[in-house]
Design a protein around this nucleic acid. Structure first.
Lengths: 189, 189
DNA sequence: GTCTATACGCTGATAGAC
DNA sequence: GTCTATCAGCGTATAGAC
């Protein structure tokens, strides 16, 4: 286990503050105080407040993109793929709860990287929808409206970060299994 | 159809801005510009920025509370009650999309009214959970984990405001029916 | 009901000493 | 790597003229 750099510490603490109050309401002075230093000292490690948000959000967005690519390339049926998507969201939500909160709540405050973020999200949703549509075509999934199903599943998965901290130590496998039961069994033929 | 007062106009425009950028990132100057007046003029109609947020969020929170009370008092089974909860969320999401966004994203910026808001939300969730637990006890609902089911349904219903504007003119009955199919049919015995 | 003028604390960020 | 000092601009809000 290698030591956390000062920059990593800033990103970790910033994510926690962003989760609680939102990007706009957190000041560089808040962040510095939380780290026990002065605001000016932060700038030896990061170039701007905006750069902090970018690093936090884009790292996670790229994790989701990479995870989705693994899933769509694998040779498995649609239900399995949906289960793997649940696993992916549970894993990221547990490993990086605060960062995920920032992604979900503060992505619109990305400035120069906003277009890039939106493209990643769009591609992710397109891949998701394609999995559902294939499943319906193959009669693995009930003939529900693909958009409503994707919206419903994604709403739950995107909200995981709100729910995980309340539950203390979460068992990822158990949580994934419960979610799969509720999100998928109902649509499984 | 009675004319909108200046104050109502402020609340409506503010809700739209809060939805897009979040409470903290919207300035009184932004709001005034959007209304075609100067920031100082806003204070003839509202006492503070905080008061705007309170009016928007608490009105909706109280709508949910009133709706839930009607549902739990009615003489119907658990599945019917869950369907009525879906209807309630769809109705409010369509009628007051922007205000609902502010409630979901900016409730933590309520200052003196935060405790009141949290109590309304807690009571709402307790009533929701009780409906699910009764349904499981009566064998109307599969023996899933009540908390996971409530979390999943509420995540979807609370995210409706994100989804509705993309869909243009929404038919509430059709949307409620699709959601009920996906959220309830899977857990129905 | 809206305006101009103004108060004044807080904001992100930089320069330069140690 | 952290500090103090500093800055220009923006934040909410008030006073008082029209």
């Amino acid at each position: 286990m290698q030591k956390e750099t000062r920059k990593e510490e800033i990103l970790r603490v910033a994510a926690r503050l962003f989760k609680n109050k939102g990007y706009s309401a957190v000041t560089m002075r808040d962040l510095a105080t939380e780290m026990g230093i002065k605001a000016a000292s932060l700038y030896n490690h990061i170039s701007s407040k905006q750069a902090i948000l970018q690093e936090i959000v884009l790292a996670i967005a790229e994790d989701f993109t990479a995870g989705m690519h693994k899933i769509i390339e694998a040779d498995s049926n649609s239900i399995k793929k949906l289960e793997q998507i649940i696993d992916l969201h549970v894993k990221i939500a547990i490993e990086n709860t605060d960062g995920l909160a920032a992604l979900n709540s503060d992505w619109m405050h990305l400035e120069s990287k906003l277009d890039y973020y939106l493209k990643l999200r769009q591609d992710y949703e397109n891949n998701y929808r394609t999995i559902i549509e294939s499943g319906i075509a193959n009669k693995e999934i009930k003939a529900v409206k693909p958009d409503v199903l994707m919206f419903s599943m994604l709403s739950t998965l995107r909200s995981l970060y709100l729910w995980i901290p309340k539950k203390g130590n979460v068992n990822p496998k158990e949580l994934s299994a419960s979610l799969a039961q509720i999100l998928i069994k109902g649509i499984n033929i």
